[in-house]
Design a protein around this nucleic acid. Structure first.
Lengths: 269, 269
DNA sequence: CAGTGGTCTAGACCACATC
DNA sequence: ATGTGGTCTAGACCACTGG
Protein backbone atom coordinates (compact mmCIF):
# COMPACT_ATOMS: atom_id res chain seq x y z
CA UNK A 1 0.00 0.00 0.00
CA UNK A 2 1.43 3.29 -1.13
CA UNK A 3 0.01 6.08 0.98
CA UNK A 4 1.69 9.29 -0.06
CA UNK A 5 3.63 11.03 -2.81
CA UNK A 6 7.27 10.38 -1.96
CA UNK A 7 9.96 12.99 -2.57
CA UNK A 8 11.75 12.97 -5.86
CA UNK A 9 15.33 13.12 -4.65
CA UNK A 10 17.17 10.20 -3.12
CA UNK A 11 14.41 7.59 -3.20
CA UNK A 12 14.46 4.95 -0.49
CA UNK A 13 15.61 1.40 -1.32
CA UNK A 14 13.20 -0.08 -3.86
CA UNK A 15 12.07 -2.90 -1.56
CA UNK A 16 10.24 -4.91 -4.20
CA UNK A 17 6.60 -4.96 -3.23
CA UNK A 18 4.97 -8.34 -3.22
CA UNK A 19 7.39 -9.42 -5.91
CA UNK A 20 8.90 -12.82 -6.42
CA UNK A 21 12.00 -11.69 -4.60
CA UNK A 22 13.28 -12.10 -1.05
CA UNK A 23 12.26 -8.61 0.05
CA UNK A 24 9.44 -7.89 2.50
CA UNK A 25 5.89 -8.02 1.29
CA UNK A 26 4.05 -4.71 1.11
CA UNK A 27 1.23 -5.44 3.51
CA UNK A 28 1.58 -2.45 5.82
CA UNK A 29 -1.63 -1.03 7.24
CA UNK A 30 -3.40 -4.36 6.64
CA UNK A 31 -5.24 -3.04 3.59
CA UNK A 32 -8.97 -3.73 4.01
CA UNK A 33 -9.81 -4.40 0.37
CA UNK A 34 -6.46 -4.41 -1.33
CA UNK A 35 -6.33 -2.28 -4.44
CA UNK A 36 -3.93 -3.19 -7.24
CA UNK A 37 -0.67 -1.30 -7.15
CA UNK A 38 -1.23 0.34 -10.52
CA UNK A 39 -4.58 1.68 -9.29
CA UNK A 40 -2.85 3.18 -6.25
CA UNK A 41 -0.26 4.77 -8.51
CA UNK A 42 -3.06 6.10 -10.72
CA UNK A 43 -4.81 7.63 -7.71
CA UNK A 44 -1.56 9.26 -6.58
CA UNK A 45 -1.05 10.74 -10.03
CA UNK A 46 -4.64 11.97 -10.11
CA UNK A 47 -4.10 13.73 -6.81
CA UNK A 48 -1.03 15.37 -8.27
CA UNK A 49 -3.01 16.49 -11.30
CA UNK A 50 -5.87 17.78 -9.17
CA UNK A 51 -3.47 19.71 -6.94
CA UNK A 52 -1.88 21.08 -10.14
CA UNK A 53 1.51 19.75 -9.15
CA UNK A 54 1.91 19.54 -12.92
CA UNK A 55 -0.15 22.13 -14.78
CA UNK A 56 -2.17 21.68 -17.98
CA UNK A 57 0.16 21.49 -20.95
CA UNK A 58 3.20 20.60 -18.84
CA UNK A 59 4.95 17.24 -18.83
CA UNK A 60 4.65 14.88 -15.89
CA UNK A 61 7.81 13.00 -14.81
CA UNK A 62 9.00 10.13 -16.99
CA UNK A 63 7.91 6.57 -16.34
CA UNK A 64 11.31 5.67 -14.95
CA UNK A 65 11.26 8.66 -12.60
CA UNK A 66 7.85 7.81 -11.27
CA UNK A 67 8.74 4.14 -10.92
CA UNK A 68 11.74 5.09 -8.79
CA UNK A 69 9.71 7.52 -6.69
CA UNK A 70 6.95 5.09 -5.95
CA UNK A 71 9.19 2.07 -5.65
CA UNK A 72 7.35 0.10 -8.29
CA UNK A 73 8.33 -1.19 -11.71
CA UNK A 74 8.09 0.80 -14.92
CA UNK A 75 5.37 -1.54 -16.16
CA UNK A 76 3.15 -0.71 -13.20
CA UNK A 77 3.57 3.02 -13.75
CA UNK A 78 2.88 2.49 -17.43
CA UNK A 79 -0.43 0.79 -16.74
CA UNK A 80 -1.49 3.65 -14.47
CA UNK A 81 -0.55 6.28 -17.04
CA UNK A 82 -2.31 4.39 -19.82
CA UNK A 83 -5.51 4.49 -17.79
CA UNK A 84 -5.12 8.24 -17.35
CA UNK A 85 -4.53 8.65 -21.07
CA UNK A 86 -7.64 6.58 -21.86
CA UNK A 87 -9.64 8.96 -19.64
CA UNK A 88 -8.17 11.99 -21.45
CA UNK A 89 -6.40 13.19 -18.32
CA UNK A 90 -3.00 13.14 -20.00
CA UNK A 91 -1.65 12.84 -23.53
CA UNK A 92 1.32 10.64 -24.36
CA UNK A 93 3.77 11.61 -27.07
CA UNK A 94 6.44 9.17 -28.08
CA UNK A 95 9.93 10.51 -27.69
CA UNK A 96 8.72 13.62 -25.88
CA UNK A 97 6.89 12.70 -22.72
CA UNK A 98 3.48 12.57 -21.08
CA UNK A 99 1.62 15.86 -20.86
CA UNK A 100 -1.25 17.07 -18.74
CA UNK A 101 -4.34 17.46 -20.92
CA UNK A 102 -5.47 20.99 -21.61
CA UNK A 103 -8.39 22.72 -23.29
CA UNK A 104 -6.19 25.57 -24.44
CA UNK A 105 -4.23 23.91 -27.25
CA UNK A 106 -6.38 21.06 -28.49
CA UNK A 107 -6.85 22.25 -32.02
CA UNK A 108 -8.75 19.38 -33.60
CA UNK A 109 -9.47 17.30 -30.50
CA UNK A 110 -11.34 20.34 -29.26
CA UNK A 111 -14.49 18.77 -30.64
CA UNK A 112 -14.49 16.44 -27.68
CA UNK A 113 -17.27 18.45 -26.01
CA UNK A 114 -18.79 19.85 -29.18
CA UNK A 115 -21.04 17.26 -30.75
CA UNK A 116 -23.09 19.46 -33.06
CA UNK A 117 -21.85 19.29 -36.63
CA UNK A 118 -22.84 20.62 -40.01
CA UNK A 119 -24.98 18.20 -42.00
CA UNK A 120 -22.29 17.91 -44.67
CA UNK A 121 -19.99 16.52 -41.98
CA UNK A 122 -17.45 19.30 -42.24
CA UNK A 123 -15.92 20.40 -38.98
CA UNK A 124 -16.30 24.06 -38.28
CA UNK A 125 -15.69 25.86 -35.05
CA UNK A 126 -18.61 28.22 -34.49
CA UNK A 127 -18.25 31.90 -33.66
CA UNK A 128 -19.57 32.95 -30.27
CA UNK A 129 -21.62 36.09 -29.57
CA UNK A 130 -22.30 36.86 -25.94
CA UNK A 131 -25.91 37.97 -25.44
CA UNK A 132 -26.01 38.41 -21.69
CA UNK A 133 -23.85 37.95 -18.62
CA UNK A 134 -25.22 38.63 -15.15
CA UNK A 135 -24.98 37.59 -11.55
CA UNK A 136 -27.99 35.82 -10.13
CA UNK A 137 -29.03 33.45 -7.38
CA UNK A 138 -29.28 29.74 -7.98
CA UNK A 139 -32.80 28.46 -8.44
CA UNK A 140 -33.84 25.06 -7.16
CA UNK A 141 -32.88 23.20 -10.35
CA UNK A 142 -29.50 24.88 -10.73
CA UNK A 143 -28.74 24.42 -7.04
CA UNK A 144 -29.48 20.72 -7.23
CA UNK A 145 -27.48 20.18 -10.41
CA UNK A 146 -24.48 22.17 -9.18
CA UNK A 147 -24.71 20.94 -5.57
CA UNK A 148 -25.17 24.45 -4.21
CA UNK A 149 -27.51 25.79 -1.59
CA UNK A 150 -30.58 27.36 -3.13
CA UNK A 151 -29.96 31.08 -3.45
CA UNK A 152 -26.17 30.85 -3.70
CA UNK A 153 -24.54 33.20 -6.19
CA UNK A 154 -24.12 32.11 -9.78
CA UNK A 155 -23.15 33.64 -13.08
CA UNK A 156 -25.71 33.39 -15.82
CA UNK A 157 -24.38 33.56 -19.32
CA UNK A 158 -26.24 33.46 -22.60
CA UNK A 159 -24.55 33.27 -25.95
CA UNK A 160 -25.36 32.48 -29.55
CA UNK A 161 -23.12 30.21 -31.61
CA UNK A 162 -22.99 30.94 -35.31
CA UNK A 163 -21.89 28.74 -38.15
CA UNK A 164 -20.97 30.62 -41.29
CA UNK A 165 -22.68 33.74 -39.94
CA UNK A 166 -25.94 31.88 -39.23
CA UNK A 167 -27.13 31.59 -35.62
CA UNK A 168 -27.61 27.90 -34.81
CA UNK A 169 -27.25 27.38 -31.07
CA UNK A 170 -28.40 29.35 -28.05
CA UNK A 171 -26.45 28.52 -24.89
CA UNK A 172 -27.66 29.34 -21.41
CA UNK A 173 -24.89 28.61 -18.95
CA UNK A 174 -24.99 28.65 -15.17
CA UNK A 175 -21.73 28.76 -13.23
CA UNK A 176 -21.16 28.81 -9.46
CA UNK A 177 -19.92 32.32 -8.67
CA UNK A 178 -17.52 31.01 -6.05
CA UNK A 179 -15.36 29.28 -8.66
CA UNK A 180 -15.56 32.00 -11.31
CA UNK A 181 -15.04 35.21 -9.33
CA UNK A 182 -14.39 38.20 -11.52
CA UNK A 183 -15.98 36.81 -14.68
CA UNK A 184 -16.80 39.77 -16.89
CA UNK A 185 -17.89 40.31 -20.43
CA UNK A 186 -14.64 42.06 -21.18
CA UNK A 187 -12.55 39.12 -20.00
CA UNK A 188 -14.69 36.68 -21.94
CA UNK A 189 -14.54 38.71 -25.12
CA UNK A 190 -10.79 39.19 -24.81
CA UNK A 191 -10.06 35.47 -24.61
CA UNK A 192 -8.95 33.65 -27.73
CA UNK A 193 -10.05 30.04 -27.76
CA UNK A 194 -12.79 27.74 -26.53
CA UNK A 195 -14.92 28.43 -23.49
CA UNK A 196 -13.40 25.54 -21.56
CA UNK A 197 -9.98 26.86 -22.48
CA UNK A 198 -11.10 30.18 -21.00
CA UNK A 199 -12.29 28.53 -17.79
CA UNK A 200 -9.03 26.62 -17.47
CA UNK A 201 -6.71 29.54 -18.20
CA UNK A 202 -8.56 32.25 -16.30
CA UNK A 203 -10.14 30.41 -13.39
CA UNK A 204 -8.17 27.19 -13.05
CA UNK A 205 -11.29 25.13 -13.60
CA UNK A 206 -10.55 22.09 -15.74
CA UNK A 207 -13.56 20.33 -17.24
CA UNK A 208 -13.12 16.58 -17.28
CA UNK A 209 -16.45 14.97 -18.03
CA UNK A 210 -20.02 15.89 -18.94
CA UNK A 211 -23.40 14.22 -18.87
CA UNK A 212 -26.01 15.26 -21.40
CA UNK A 213 -29.75 14.73 -21.72
CA UNK A 214 -31.30 15.46 -25.10
CA UNK A 215 -34.90 16.32 -25.87
CA UNK A 216 -36.93 17.93 -28.62
CA UNK A 217 -38.76 21.14 -27.67
CA UNK A 218 -40.64 23.99 -29.34
CA UNK A 219 -38.95 27.35 -29.76
CA UNK A 220 -40.41 30.12 -27.63
CA UNK A 221 -40.66 33.60 -29.09
CA UNK A 222 -37.43 34.99 -27.71
CA UNK A 223 -35.37 31.95 -28.71
CA UNK A 224 -36.98 31.85 -32.14
CA UNK A 225 -35.96 35.45 -32.73
CA UNK A 226 -32.36 34.84 -31.69
CA UNK A 227 -32.02 31.75 -33.87
CA UNK A 228 -34.09 33.20 -36.72
CA UNK A 229 -36.58 30.36 -36.84
CA UNK A 230 -40.37 30.40 -36.61
CA UNK A 231 -41.88 30.49 -33.14
CA UNK A 232 -42.82 26.95 -32.21
CA UNK A 233 -40.22 25.41 -34.50
CA UNK A 234 -38.71 22.18 -33.16
CA UNK A 235 -35.34 22.65 -31.46
CA UNK A 236 -32.90 20.16 -30.05
CA UNK A 237 -32.44 20.79 -26.31
CA UNK A 238 -29.18 19.56 -24.80
CA UNK A 239 -28.98 19.76 -21.01
CA UNK A 240 -25.43 19.33 -19.84
CA UNK A 241 -23.81 19.08 -16.42
CA UNK A 242 -20.03 19.30 -16.53
CA UNK A 243 -17.72 17.96 -13.85
CA UNK A 244 -14.23 18.79 -12.71
CA UNK A 245 -11.96 16.85 -10.32
CA UNK A 246 -13.66 14.98 -7.53
CA UNK A 247 -16.87 14.56 -9.52
CA UNK A 248 -17.80 18.10 -8.60
CA UNK A 249 -20.33 19.72 -10.98
CA UNK A 250 -19.21 23.19 -12.05
CA UNK A 251 -21.33 24.00 -15.07
CA UNK A 252 -24.99 23.65 -15.93
CA UNK A 253 -25.77 24.35 -19.54
CA UNK A 254 -28.89 24.32 -21.63
CA UNK A 255 -28.25 24.33 -25.35
CA UNK A 256 -31.03 24.94 -27.85
CA UNK A 257 -30.07 24.08 -31.40
CA UNK A 258 -31.77 24.52 -34.73
CA UNK A 259 -31.23 21.26 -36.59
CA UNK A 260 -32.25 22.41 -40.05
CA UNK A 261 -28.65 22.24 -41.34
CA UNK A 262 -26.89 20.70 -38.34
CA UNK A 263 -27.16 17.64 -36.17
CA UNK A 264 -25.86 16.14 -32.96
CA UNK A 265 -23.40 13.40 -33.73
CA UNK A 266 -22.82 10.30 -31.63
CA UNK A 267 -21.13 6.96 -31.97
CA UNK A 268 -22.12 3.80 -30.13
CA UNK A 269 -19.71 0.94 -29.69
CA UNK B 1 5.14 -10.75 -39.41
CA UNK B 2 2.53 -13.36 -38.69
CA UNK B 3 0.58 -14.10 -41.83
CA UNK B 4 -1.88 -16.83 -41.05
CA UNK B 5 -3.74 -18.62 -38.28
CA UNK B 6 -1.45 -21.50 -37.36
CA UNK B 7 -2.82 -24.92 -36.39
CA UNK B 8 -3.51 -25.59 -32.74
CA UNK B 9 -1.68 -28.91 -32.40
CA UNK B 10 2.08 -29.30 -32.23
CA UNK B 11 3.17 -25.69 -32.66
CA UNK B 12 6.54 -25.10 -34.29
CA UNK B 13 9.52 -24.05 -32.16
CA UNK B 14 8.76 -20.68 -30.54
CA UNK B 15 11.63 -18.89 -32.28
CA UNK B 16 11.44 -15.71 -30.27
CA UNK B 17 10.49 -12.97 -32.66
CA UNK B 18 12.62 -9.90 -32.52
CA UNK B 19 13.35 -10.66 -28.88
CA UNK B 20 16.52 -10.01 -26.98
CA UNK B 21 17.59 -13.59 -27.62
CA UNK B 22 19.91 -15.23 -30.10
CA UNK B 23 17.12 -16.43 -32.39
CA UNK B 24 16.46 -15.01 -35.85
CA UNK B 25 14.63 -11.74 -36.14
CA UNK B 26 11.13 -11.90 -37.60
CA UNK B 27 11.65 -9.78 -40.66
CA UNK B 28 10.30 -12.13 -43.30
CA UNK B 29 8.49 -10.54 -46.24
CA UNK B 30 10.30 -7.25 -45.61
CA UNK B 31 7.25 -5.69 -44.02
CA UNK B 32 6.52 -2.38 -45.73
CA UNK B 33 5.19 -0.55 -42.68
CA UNK B 34 5.78 -2.92 -39.82
CA UNK B 35 2.78 -3.36 -37.60
CA UNK B 36 3.32 -4.22 -33.93
CA UNK B 37 3.03 -7.91 -33.14
CA UNK B 38 0.07 -7.43 -30.79
CA UNK B 39 -1.80 -5.62 -33.57
CA UNK B 40 -1.16 -8.55 -35.89
CA UNK B 41 -2.42 -10.95 -33.24
CA UNK B 42 -5.47 -8.75 -32.76
CA UNK B 43 -6.20 -8.79 -36.48
CA UNK B 44 -5.85 -12.58 -36.55
CA UNK B 45 -8.30 -12.90 -33.67
CA UNK B 46 -10.71 -10.51 -35.36
CA UNK B 47 -10.63 -12.64 -38.48
CA UNK B 48 -11.42 -15.66 -36.34
CA UNK B 49 -14.33 -13.84 -34.74
CA UNK B 50 -15.61 -12.62 -38.09
CA UNK B 51 -15.41 -16.13 -39.54
CA UNK B 52 -17.23 -17.35 -36.42
CA UNK B 53 -14.43 -19.74 -35.58
CA UNK B 54 -15.63 -19.03 -32.05
CA UNK B 55 -19.32 -18.18 -31.89
CA UNK B 56 -21.00 -15.49 -29.78
CA UNK B 57 -21.17 -16.60 -26.17
CA UNK B 58 -18.41 -19.19 -26.58
CA UNK B 59 -14.95 -18.96 -25.06
CA UNK B 60 -11.92 -18.27 -27.20
CA UNK B 61 -8.72 -20.21 -26.40
CA UNK B 62 -6.77 -19.22 -23.32
CA UNK B 63 -3.97 -16.69 -23.48
CA UNK B 64 -1.36 -19.40 -23.08
CA UNK B 65 -2.90 -21.45 -25.90
CA UNK B 66 -2.97 -18.49 -28.24
CA UNK B 67 0.56 -17.49 -27.31
CA UNK B 68 1.77 -20.99 -28.20
CA UNK B 69 -0.18 -21.02 -31.47
CA UNK B 70 1.10 -17.68 -32.64
CA UNK B 71 4.58 -18.13 -31.27
CA UNK B 72 4.46 -14.96 -29.20
CA UNK B 73 4.51 -14.30 -25.49
CA UNK B 74 1.48 -14.32 -23.25
CA UNK B 75 1.87 -10.58 -22.69
CA UNK B 76 1.54 -9.87 -26.39
CA UNK B 77 -1.62 -11.95 -26.63
CA UNK B 78 -2.96 -10.21 -23.55
CA UNK B 79 -2.49 -6.79 -25.10
CA UNK B 80 -4.37 -7.90 -28.23
CA UNK B 81 -7.23 -9.35 -26.22
CA UNK B 82 -7.46 -6.27 -24.02
CA UNK B 83 -7.93 -4.15 -27.14
CA UNK B 84 -10.72 -6.47 -28.28
CA UNK B 85 -12.35 -6.24 -24.86
CA UNK B 86 -12.14 -2.44 -24.94
CA UNK B 87 -13.98 -2.51 -28.28
CA UNK B 88 -16.67 -4.79 -26.83
CA UNK B 89 -15.72 -7.64 -29.14
CA UNK B 90 -15.06 -10.04 -26.26
CA UNK B 91 -15.73 -10.14 -22.55
CA UNK B 92 -13.09 -11.28 -20.07
CA UNK B 93 -14.07 -13.17 -16.93
CA UNK B 94 -11.41 -13.90 -14.35
CA UNK B 95 -11.05 -17.57 -13.61
CA UNK B 96 -13.38 -18.55 -16.45
CA UNK B 97 -12.01 -17.34 -19.75
CA UNK B 98 -12.54 -14.85 -22.55
CA UNK B 99 -15.90 -15.01 -24.30
CA UNK B 100 -17.15 -13.75 -27.63
CA UNK B 101 -19.54 -10.84 -27.06
CA UNK B 102 -23.19 -11.54 -27.78
CA UNK B 103 -26.42 -9.56 -27.92
CA UNK B 104 -28.42 -12.55 -26.70
CA UNK B 105 -27.45 -12.62 -23.03
CA UNK B 106 -26.45 -9.10 -22.11
CA UNK B 107 -29.09 -8.47 -19.50
CA UNK B 108 -28.14 -5.07 -18.18
CA UNK B 109 -25.39 -4.18 -20.63
CA UNK B 110 -28.08 -4.43 -23.25
CA UNK B 111 -28.50 -0.69 -22.94
CA UNK B 112 -25.35 -0.28 -24.99
CA UNK B 113 -27.41 0.62 -28.08
CA UNK B 114 -30.45 1.95 -26.24
CA UNK B 115 -29.79 5.50 -25.12
CA UNK B 116 -33.33 6.63 -24.46
CA UNK B 117 -34.18 6.58 -20.76
CA UNK B 118 -37.04 7.56 -18.53
CA UNK B 119 -36.64 11.04 -17.07
CA UNK B 120 -36.47 9.61 -13.55
CA UNK B 121 -33.35 7.75 -14.64
CA UNK B 122 -34.79 4.30 -14.07
CA UNK B 123 -33.80 1.70 -16.58
CA UNK B 124 -36.69 0.00 -18.26
CA UNK B 125 -36.62 -2.21 -21.28
CA UNK B 126 -39.46 -1.13 -23.56
CA UNK B 127 -42.06 -3.45 -25.02
CA UNK B 128 -42.05 -3.71 -28.81
CA UNK B 129 -45.14 -3.74 -31.01
CA UNK B 130 -44.57 -4.47 -34.69
CA UNK B 131 -46.65 -2.15 -36.85
CA UNK B 132 -45.54 -3.21 -40.30
CA UNK B 133 -43.08 -5.51 -42.03
CA UNK B 134 -42.76 -5.55 -45.79
CA UNK B 135 -40.34 -6.10 -48.63
CA UNK B 136 -39.43 -3.08 -50.65
CA UNK B 137 -36.76 -1.68 -52.93
CA UNK B 138 -34.00 0.53 -51.60
CA UNK B 139 -34.47 4.21 -52.30
CA UNK B 140 -31.53 6.45 -53.02
CA UNK B 141 -30.92 7.35 -49.37
CA UNK B 142 -31.17 3.80 -48.07
CA UNK B 143 -29.00 2.50 -50.91
CA UNK B 144 -26.29 5.01 -50.13
CA UNK B 145 -26.37 4.40 -46.39
CA UNK B 146 -26.38 0.60 -46.75
CA UNK B 147 -23.98 0.52 -49.69
CA UNK B 148 -26.52 -1.18 -51.95
CA UNK B 149 -27.45 -0.52 -55.53
CA UNK B 150 -30.55 1.60 -55.80
CA UNK B 151 -33.54 -0.70 -56.18
CA UNK B 152 -32.01 -3.68 -54.37
CA UNK B 153 -34.35 -5.60 -52.08
CA UNK B 154 -34.74 -4.52 -48.48
CA UNK B 155 -36.99 -5.30 -45.58
CA UNK B 156 -38.87 -2.37 -44.14
CA UNK B 157 -39.92 -2.71 -40.56
CA UNK B 158 -41.89 -0.31 -38.41
CA UNK B 159 -42.47 -0.78 -34.71
CA UNK B 160 -43.57 1.15 -31.67
CA UNK B 161 -41.68 0.93 -28.40
CA UNK B 162 -43.75 1.36 -25.26
CA UNK B 163 -42.63 2.26 -21.79
CA UNK B 164 -45.13 1.31 -19.09
CA UNK B 165 -47.83 0.84 -21.74
CA UNK B 166 -47.23 4.29 -23.23
CA UNK B 167 -45.98 4.55 -26.82
CA UNK B 168 -42.78 6.60 -26.83
CA UNK B 169 -40.69 5.64 -29.86
CA UNK B 170 -41.51 4.89 -33.48
CA UNK B 171 -38.81 2.91 -35.24
CA UNK B 172 -38.52 2.66 -39.00
CA UNK B 173 -35.86 0.11 -39.86
CA UNK B 174 -34.39 -0.74 -43.25
CA UNK B 175 -32.45 -3.99 -43.66
CA UNK B 176 -30.73 -5.40 -46.76
CA UNK B 177 -32.86 -8.39 -47.80
CA UNK B 178 -29.79 -10.38 -48.80
CA UNK B 179 -28.61 -10.67 -45.22
CA UNK B 180 -32.00 -11.19 -43.63
CA UNK B 181 -33.67 -13.73 -45.94
CA UNK B 182 -36.80 -15.25 -44.46
CA UNK B 183 -37.53 -12.45 -42.03
CA UNK B 184 -41.20 -12.69 -41.14
CA UNK B 185 -43.51 -11.18 -38.61
CA UNK B 186 -44.03 -14.58 -37.01
CA UNK B 187 -40.31 -15.13 -36.49
CA UNK B 188 -39.87 -11.67 -35.06
CA UNK B 189 -42.79 -12.02 -32.69
CA UNK B 190 -41.64 -15.45 -31.56
CA UNK B 191 -38.19 -14.25 -30.53
CA UNK B 192 -37.52 -13.48 -26.89
CA UNK B 193 -34.95 -10.77 -26.43
CA UNK B 194 -33.59 -7.65 -28.06
CA UNK B 195 -33.75 -6.97 -31.77
CA UNK B 196 -29.97 -7.24 -32.15
CA UNK B 197 -30.14 -10.53 -30.27
CA UNK B 198 -32.71 -11.62 -32.82
CA UNK B 199 -30.49 -10.60 -35.73
CA UNK B 200 -27.55 -12.42 -34.23
CA UNK B 201 -29.37 -15.64 -33.34
CA UNK B 202 -31.55 -15.94 -36.44
CA UNK B 203 -29.45 -14.40 -39.20
CA UNK B 204 -25.89 -14.51 -37.90
CA UNK B 205 -25.59 -10.75 -38.21
CA UNK B 206 -23.65 -9.32 -35.28
CA UNK B 207 -23.96 -5.58 -34.75
CA UNK B 208 -20.69 -4.04 -33.63
CA UNK B 209 -20.93 -0.29 -33.92
CA UNK B 210 -23.43 2.42 -34.79
CA UNK B 211 -23.31 6.05 -35.81
CA UNK B 212 -26.21 8.32 -34.90
CA UNK B 213 -27.31 11.77 -35.99
CA UNK B 214 -29.90 13.53 -33.84
CA UNK B 215 -32.28 16.26 -34.83
CA UNK B 216 -35.53 17.81 -33.63
CA UNK B 217 -38.50 17.49 -36.00
CA UNK B 218 -42.25 18.05 -36.00
CA UNK B 219 -44.58 15.07 -35.75
CA UNK B 220 -46.57 14.39 -38.89
CA UNK B 221 -50.15 13.22 -38.58
CA UNK B 222 -49.52 9.49 -38.80
CA UNK B 223 -46.63 9.54 -36.35
CA UNK B 224 -48.53 11.76 -33.96
CA UNK B 225 -51.38 9.25 -33.91
CA UNK B 226 -49.09 6.31 -33.21
CA UNK B 227 -47.26 8.12 -30.40
CA UNK B 228 -50.43 9.81 -29.11
CA UNK B 229 -49.05 13.31 -29.31
CA UNK B 230 -50.44 16.39 -31.05
CA UNK B 231 -49.69 16.76 -34.74
CA UNK B 232 -46.72 19.09 -35.06
CA UNK B 233 -45.38 18.25 -31.63
CA UNK B 234 -41.58 18.27 -31.40
CA UNK B 235 -40.00 14.83 -31.65
CA UNK B 236 -36.42 13.70 -31.28
CA UNK B 237 -35.26 12.08 -34.54
CA UNK B 238 -32.36 9.64 -34.24
CA UNK B 239 -30.92 8.45 -37.55
CA UNK B 240 -28.73 5.43 -37.03
CA UNK B 241 -26.51 3.38 -39.32
CA UNK B 242 -25.30 0.15 -37.75
CA UNK B 243 -22.20 -1.76 -38.84
CA UNK B 244 -21.09 -5.35 -38.65
CA UNK B 245 -17.65 -6.85 -39.34
CA UNK B 246 -15.61 -5.18 -42.03
CA UNK B 247 -17.30 -1.82 -41.47
CA UNK B 248 -20.22 -3.04 -43.54
CA UNK B 249 -23.49 -1.18 -42.85
CA UNK B 250 -26.39 -3.57 -42.31
CA UNK B 251 -29.10 -1.49 -40.71
CA UNK B 252 -30.54 1.94 -41.36
CA UNK B 253 -32.90 3.12 -38.67
CA UNK B 254 -34.91 6.23 -38.08
CA UNK B 255 -36.19 6.60 -34.55
CA UNK B 256 -38.79 9.22 -33.63
CA UNK B 257 -39.16 9.71 -29.90
CA UNK B 258 -41.52 11.72 -27.77
CA UNK B 259 -39.37 13.37 -25.11
CA UNK B 260 -42.10 14.48 -22.76
CA UNK B 261 -41.15 11.89 -20.13
CA UNK B 262 -37.97 10.47 -21.68
CA UNK B 263 -34.64 11.69 -22.95
CA UNK B 264 -31.58 10.58 -24.86
CA UNK B 265 -28.68 10.10 -22.51
CA UNK B 266 -25.05 10.66 -23.38
CA UNK B 267 -21.77 11.01 -21.58
CA UNK B 268 -18.76 12.96 -22.83
CA UNK B 269 -15.29 12.26 -21.54
C1' DC C 1 23.91 11.55 -28.53
C1' DA C 2 20.65 10.79 -24.46
C1' DG C 3 15.94 10.61 -23.03
C1' DT C 4 11.23 9.53 -23.88
C1' DG C 5 7.42 6.46 -24.69
C1' DG C 6 6.33 1.82 -27.35
C1' DT C 7 6.95 -3.16 -27.96
C1' DC C 8 8.18 -7.73 -26.46
C1' DT C 9 9.69 -11.42 -23.62
C1' DA C 10 10.07 -14.43 -19.44
C1' DG C 11 8.63 -15.80 -15.30
C1' DA C 12 6.57 -15.24 -10.77
C1' DC C 13 2.58 -15.01 -7.83
C1' DC C 14 -2.46 -13.73 -6.88
C1' DA C 15 -7.60 -14.22 -7.25
C1' DC C 16 -11.26 -16.62 -8.93
C1' DA C 17 -13.93 -20.61 -10.87
C1' DT C 18 -14.61 -25.38 -11.40
C1' DC C 19 -14.14 -30.09 -10.54
C1' DA D 1 -5.77 -29.58 -7.83
C1' DT D 2 -5.98 -27.30 -12.10
C1' DG D 3 -6.82 -23.79 -15.31
C1' DT D 4 -8.28 -19.17 -16.18
C1' DG D 5 -7.48 -14.21 -16.27
C1' DG D 6 -5.10 -10.32 -13.27
C1' DT D 7 -0.99 -8.20 -11.26
C1' DC D 8 3.85 -7.30 -10.95
C1' DT D 9 8.66 -7.39 -11.91
C1' DA D 10 13.01 -7.24 -14.74
C1' DG D 11 15.30 -6.32 -18.63
C1' DA D 12 15.87 -6.01 -23.58
C1' DC D 13 15.38 -3.49 -27.84
C1' DC D 14 12.76 -0.23 -31.05
C1' DA D 15 11.04 4.37 -32.66
C1' DC D 16 10.84 8.97 -32.13
C1' DT D 17 12.43 13.67 -30.48
C1' DG D 18 15.59 17.14 -29.65
C1' DG D 19 20.00 19.12 -28.41
Amino acid sequence: MIDRMPPADPAPPPAHPRAAGPAGTRRDLAAPAREPLYAQVQALLEHGLERAEWKPGEAIPSELDLAARFGVSQGTVRKAIEALAAANRVVRRQGKGTFVATHTEERSSNFRFLRIRRDDGEYEYPASRLVELKRARAGADAARALELRSGEGVYLLRRVLEYGGRPVILDEITLPAARFRGLTRARYDAFRGSMYGFFEAEFGVHMLRAVERLRAVSADRATAALLRVAAGAPLLAVDRVTYTWGERPVELRRELASTARHHYWNELA
